[in-house]
Amino acid sequence: MSTDASHEVRLAADTAASRAPRNTDDAGQQPGHKGGPRRKGLSERNRPLWMLIPGGALMIIIIVVPLLLGIYMSVLNLDQYTLRKWISAPLIGAENFVEAVTDSPLLHAVWLSVSYSLLAMVVTLPLGVAAAVATQNAFKGRAVIRSIFLIPYVLPSFVVATVWRTMLQPGGIVDEALATVGIHVGLWLNGPQTFWTLVLVQIWASWPFIYLLALSGLQSVDHEVHEASALDGALWWNKLRYVVFPYLKGPLSLAFLIGMLHHINNFTLPFVLFGVPAPSDVEVLPILTYVTSFQSFRFGLSAAMAFISLVLIAIPLFVYLRAVKLDDADTPGGKK
């Protein structure tokens, strides 16, 4: 979560910071802009598209080629017996896909991944926003509190998982602490409760991400807006609900999207927490593809699994993107 997500935070923060004020500016200065058909500006006609070539070439090498290779692998019978000459591995068409859907825990894994991500997201959203609101106004020691809030985010996933695994093992510190108040929960790292363990640890590790984005959203609220609402006599809740929260919609939609994808992709956390083979209640997508690839050596089957999950997750994602208009170039502020 921490390392590769940091650039996303920056990106998100930039977007959020640049978006909100421009929203108001645009609305103020160009009334009727959204109404009639928009004329293409000069800048749009003479855009130097050739400047995209280096980036485009890199995109093709880093994203498109591997994706196509992955799709090609998924129709091969690629395993430890054929790996050496993998280009000439036997072509078996859709067999891998049929096996992935009918004779593997893939669909169960997709369900687990999506539900766990969604649960973690639903809990972290209010937590992150509350933390951001609480540290919005200056008070003594705010910098310290803000730094402390970021600790879970700064720790590498591996460390988070190792620490939690140690705390949650049978007879560990969590069990003992709960036992002093008379609660006996049972196993955290095996059996049906593992799902909730994963959700819990994920929440702990990822709420600061929401907090960061919410904070960036809050900082984009203009001072005048606060003044205006104060003059209108809005009390804290009304101010929050009708004045501040609308500013957060953009950053939080983005946070939701990035967070979901992160959770669905999170391999380190379940791998370190539960090990391999994972208890069946936490055999999430990354673990399943990992085991299929690197324990059973079924590279073709695992590529098919990855492709199916890609499609399954891309569809709702597309719908979501349309709904929140994060990718909509016509939205003011969406383009420069």
Partner: peptide
């Protein structure tokens, strides 16, 4: 591509490289 599982991705990227 972001949503592709990390490990699958790793395997594919390796193969591509």
């Amino acid at each position: 591509m972001r949503f592709k599982s990390t490990t699958g991705l790793a395997a594919v990227v390796t193969a591509a490289a």
